[in-house]
Amino acid sequence: MSKDKKDLLQGTLDLLVMRILKAGSRHGYDIVKRIELLSEDTIRVGEGSLYPSLHRLEKRGYVQAHWAQSETGRRAKFYNLTPEGKSMVQEKESYWLEFTSAVNLVLKNA
């Protein structure tokens, strides 16, 4: 049971990360802050799960990384979506919307 839960969360985090990166390349800390901002501080992403998620996506070829100057002038690792990542985020997003609206329907009408 706990395994399912973790998978679900992991999948969700991957979706959120990729969706954020769709707008352009960002470094890890930026992604965390962006998610917090957009979710109005509801979702707090642990650093302990963000970086493994990024590395996993990189390993799977959906995300690419490069080093560049950050806004503070310090070198940072920036991530952006690969073409495969872009089509993947499309797919995942529509799946998520379908899924949540179905869940909402059940919750509303039950």
């Binding site: 650093e47 302990g48 970086y51 998620s53 996993r56 390993k59």
Partner: peptide
């Protein structure tokens, strides 16, 4: 403190490298 256990985190990342 907010970041959590760095070594454990690194271990997780290494796992992700495959």
């Amino acid at each position: 403190k907010l970041f959590g256990g760095i070594e454990k985190f690194k271990e997780h990342s290494r796992d992700a490298w495959g």
